[in-house]
Each structure stands twice: as structure tokens, then as C-alpha cells.
Amino acid sequence: MLSFSPGARSMLAAAVCFSLGALFIKLAGVRLPPMEILFARSVVGILYCTILLRRQGANILGEQKRWFLLLRGLLGFSALFCTFYSFVHLPLADATVIVFAHPVFVALFAAIILKEHLGGRGTVCVLTAICGVLLVAKPSFLFGHSSALDPFAVTVALAAAVLSACAIITVRFLSKHVHALTIILYPTLVVAALGPVLDGGNWLMPQGREWALLLAVGLVMNMGQHFMTVAYRQERAAIIAAIGYLEIPLAALFGTLFLSEIPDLWTCAGAALVVLGTLALGGGKKGS
């Protein structure tokens, strides 16, 4: 019988929550615009973070590094919007694979900005993961035919991976100075402030089950964030990252069961390369 550590169980719960959240985003996005769905998620996130911060007696907006917190908020907001957009406009499995390439960009940016050594092994891992993304995206300049995927949506998914990587770099800096929940709170505050201004004119009044879907998105996505935070505190990062890739087969499963989205062989092969490359990257941080 399998036995999991508390941290592993927390990350398993997080992976299920994030996968369900992606499904609910896809279902709500049949009629509602992505920014409106993101706004609903952020309202729940603000309530969640504020309640926990007050219980712990921490400063909600942070006592220092507020300009960096604002930068983190803007990057997080942009990454979340691109992620939500890609979930709505791409098959769940394809969008999840591309967005999950963000550790590759974290490694690249850390090497450039933080001067962290990437090494030969790290370079091979990065190139492997990038090849996986190309197999999923199937660009016409390589495959010689038009991809079934929306090229603009693929570009947005790649932007989500890049922006997520930039946000993670700022989190690595801020985590030494600011409460973790405050770091999580800032993107939701930016969404609440800018969402209605940037896209409010296109919002639609939710109808029927859409109210339940918006609430479900907010609840399960923030529960996933909470479980993931707990997991990283209880277990080694490499193990948590490995379990997090459960989101890819779960996305494929939910897409098949509820949306009739069956991944093709290119998507499966690309997912395998992305997982292989990023896990090997995480397991060989020192490079060679």
C-alpha cells in the first residue's frame, strides 16, 4: 500500500484543485470573458488571504519592499490572465503542458538575473523542455502545415509561462523579507483594481450555473494555492515539483471526460519531454 508524506499529500490535493480549477475556468469561459473569471477568483483570494493574515497578526500590505510587491502583483496578474485565457481557448491538456514550461524560463532568468550557474546539463534540460513545447504547439514553420491550435492562444500560453517565471524570480527575492500570504495577496489586489478598468466593458452578467462555476473557480484555485504553500513547507521542493506534474494527466483526463478533448500523440510526446526536461533540471541544480 502506498504511503505519502504530509507534504506529498498536500501537493496531491493542490494538483487536484488546480486541475479542477482549470476545468471550471474552461466551462465558465464558454460565455464569460477570461478577465471576469479571473476577477471572481481574485475576490475570493483577497478574502482568503486577508482573513489568514489578520489571524496571524501580520501586516496585510507588508511593511517593506512594497515597490517589489507591486511588481510581483503586476507580473502575477499578467501571468494569471494569460493562463486563464489559454485554458479557455486551448484544449486543457495542451494549455497545461505549455504553461508548465515555466521552470525552464525560471532557470534561464535565474542564470541571467541572479547569476545562478546553469551548466551543460541544465542547458540540455532546457532544450529538451523547449522541444516538448514545440511538439505540443506544432508551429507551421516546423511541421509544414497549420496547427489545429489557435496560434494566438498558444502565444498567450507561452507568455503565461514566461510571466510566471518572472513572478517566481520576484517571489524568491521577496520571500526573504515579506510574509508569504502578503506575496500571494498582491496579484489578487492588482486584478481587483485593474480588471474592471481593462476589460470591464466586455463583462456579462453571470447566469444560472455560471455563478456556481465562478465561485468554484475562486474556491478551488485558492485552496490549491494554500495546499501548495503547505506542501513546500513540509516536503523537499524536488518532490513537490514532481507531484505537481500530475496536473498534466489530470487535465487530459478532465478534458476527455467532460469536454471531449482527446490529446493527440504529439501532445503526449511533448508533455513527456517537458516533464523530463524540467524534472531533470530540478534534480541537477548545480549543473556540470
Rank of each mutant, 00 (worst) to 15 (best):
S10N: 14
G76I: 10
A160N: 03
E63M: 03
L27R: 14
T83G: 13
P249L: 09
I113N: 04
V88C: 13
L70W: 09
S78A: 15
I168H: 12
F173M: 07
E210D: 12
F4G: 04
F24R: 09
A193V: 15
M205F: 10
K65V: 02
P91M: 04
I243K: 08
G195W: 08
T188Q: 15
R31P: 04
I46N: 09
T96L: 05
R9T: 02
F173S: 10
F87K: 02
K138P: 04
R172P: 03
T96C: 05
Y245T: 07
V156D: 02
S164E: 07
A137Y: 04
L250Y: 07
P196F: 11
A95E: 10
T278Q: 00
A193T: 13
A212T: 13
L279C: 08
M35G: 13
V178L: 07
L71H: 00
I51M: 05
T188P: 00
I243A: 05
A212R: 00
I51T: 13
L134Y: 03
T128C: 14
L219Q: 06
L90N: 03
L53C: 05
A93R: 08
A231T: 11
V106H: 12
I240K: 01
F100G: 02
F173W: 06
H226C: 01
A79L: 01
P151W: 10
L273M: 14
G73D: 05
D94H: 11
Q225Y: 08
V133L: 10
S146L: 12
H102D: 11
P196N: 07
I113M: 13
G57I: 11
I37V: 15
L75A: 14
R41C: 05
